[in-house]
Amino acid sequence: MEKYGLTISLGILLGTLDRLYMLRSDYRQYPGYPHGFVTHVSLGFIASALGAVAIPAIVEKQFAAVTFLALAAQQFRDIREMERKSLAALEEAELIKRGHDYIEGIARVFEARNFLVMLTSLATSATMFFFGMPLLSLIVGIFFILLSERLMRGRVIGHICDVDAGRLHFKGPLLMVEQIDIMNVGLPVMREKILQDGLGIIVKPKNDNARATIHNMGQRQAIAHVAATILGSKKDVDTPEFTPLVRKDVDNGQIALFIVPAEKDIESLIAAVERVPVLESAGRAPLKSKAGRIASD
């Protein structure tokens, strides 16, 4: 054990640091409450321990130990399950839902982070084992920490679409953002209030792939949720008129967001929508098929 002491402990250290570093960028997806924090750091610690012992185990011809890695993968799938369940339970209390797709996306991220932690600690301990230089292995570890942050950074709506302000107006009782119908609002007082306090956004897809992606209802719900999280919403249980809604122009695939925010600031709203993550489960790429390219012109 002693001769691998530094190898293993450096691996565990860097792996756990990696998990901590990735937790830092979490607040948007998850309110960072202390218990969730402890859970994820502990699991990150276990993941990094597994990564760190892999090489010493092989060297010692402890092949059984390597099969534990497979067990670990199973463990981390449970993390996804855990996150999915708790977010789905919390969803009940959300006035503006995250939606299943967003929850699934967050749960997958939490799972994937543990694999990145394993990779970081594996790389660190491997460097230490083969070169015997603690400083070099620290540098490799830090490189992998930065790499994992880079890998976890997905695309956002601003990459695939142009986001512009849209004019809110009524056609009779029908609320519209530019040319896109949102909903029928019956009460004159509510119409006045919406015109006074509401905001509209038009999201224009840059190509057919983007159009197919924002066509997904889960993606659209995520846009409404993020906008309402950042700007607040005047919706309450008895004012369904103020529900943020995202609707599509059937002809050109543009989508419109309507929201009655607590903070009426169009610049902030545009920035918020541009930063909505493109959900893994919503991503579509028809242009990657030959049939899709034929239709694109």
Partner: peptide, 23 residues
């Protein structure tokens, strides 16, 4: 409009205008 609003508040529902004077 008043009756519709009161009903909607009570039922936590939404008022829609059919355009022919019916809410």
């Amino acid at each position: 409009a008043r009756v519709a609003q009161t009903l909607a508040k009570i039922m936590q529902a939404m008022v829609h205008d059919l355009g022919n004077g019916v809410y």
